[in-house]
Computed example of a mutant assay.
Amino acid sequence: MQDLIHAIVMGIVEGLTEFLPVSSTGHLILTGELLGFKGERAKTFEVVIQFGAVLAVLVLYWKRFLKLLNFRMGKDSGLNALHVALAMVPACTVAVLMHGFIKAYLFGPQTVLIGLVAGGLLMIAADRSRRKIVSEELDDITYTQAFVIGCFQVLALWPGFSRSGSTISGGMLAGASQKAAAEFTFIVSVPIMAGASIVDLLGSKEYLVKEDVLLFLVGLLAAFIVAMIAVITFINLMKRLRLSYFAYYRFGLALLFFLLML
């Protein structure tokens, strides 16, 4: 029963934070520390419940994903698969080359603390930059902007930096509106997260045992439900809240990490 409670709590944390610019990895590590839910089994569980968050975006944006197949070159072609591919290339390349190093040395409370603070500073810089918005809506994003966002997504390979935080910041610095950058982040997250999760699961397949099926399903379902609510809420918040507000929250979380490590 205790394991199922842990699964629900971790699933809620994953669903709530995966698409917010606050670092889901940081929250999961901190929550795992507080619950005593750690080790290789817990890491495998965290990978599995990410699929719940991925599924939530697929359900909410299924029409948009179908439109991605409408590939046309040109300035007014609207968002398509090439935008997503350009945004994926930088992070995928670095991830393949440095996967072992990242897993061995960058997943821990200390590195997450650094990522939280550094990512927060980037978000404040993007929020306060005097940029000209040239892409107000999702379909206005250009191929160049998509690639620039992809370059910023490389920063998310550092745990705590936040994939959504780095890509939204990159999009804003490249001239996209905060809302358009956030929606593009959701779209790009699906292939990136799905691919990364599959790679991680293949490397942790010895920890996928039938005794944990219920545990993993409960966590995945909790992440799916909460992520759907979080995505809808976040898009509405992006119309009213500045990105800096999320950065200040990250600083508070970093302080909590620091106190926990003491």
Rank of each mutant, 00 (worst) to 15 (best):
I229N: 02
A56F: 06
G26P: 09
F186T: 10
A182C: 15
A196F: 02
R41K: 15
G171V: 10
V47C: 02
H83L: 04
M228Q: 14
L66M: 13
Q178E: 13
V199C: 00
P21Y: 13
T142E: 09
S135H: 11
S197W: 05
F19W: 15
L116F: 08
L4Q: 11
N70T: 04
G170L: 10
L253F: 13
K43C: 00
L16S: 11
V199P: 00
L16D: 09
F37H: 13
V47W: 02
M98F: 13
A222T: 07
P90Q: 02
A156C: 10
G195K: 03
V59T: 13
L58G: 12
W158S: 01
V134P: 00
H83Y: 05
I5R: 05
L202T: 05
G119V: 05
M238S: 11
K103F: 00
A125N: 01
L208E: 08
A247K: 03
F37T: 06
L34C: 07
S189R: 12
S166R: 07
T142H: 04
A118C: 14
C151A: 11
L20Y: 13
S164I: 14
I232S: 14
P159Y: 04
E206H: 09
L260N: 08
R242N: 15
T185V: 05
L262F: 15
L68W: 01
K43R: 12
Q50C: 03
A125V: 15
W62I: 12
A56H: 07
K103T: 03
T111M: 14
L86R: 10
V9N: 04
A176K: 08
L97H: 00
T111V: 06
A42R: 09
N236S: 15
K205M: 14
F184R: 03
V117K: 01
T25Q: 02
P159M: 06
L221P: 03
G165C: 10
G203N: 12
S166M: 13
I114G: 08
A254Y: 08
E211L: 05
V117W: 01
S129W: 12
L217I: 14
I5C: 08
G32Q: 10
L255W: 02
G165W: 09
D127Y: 00
F37D: 13
R41A: 15
L35Y: 03
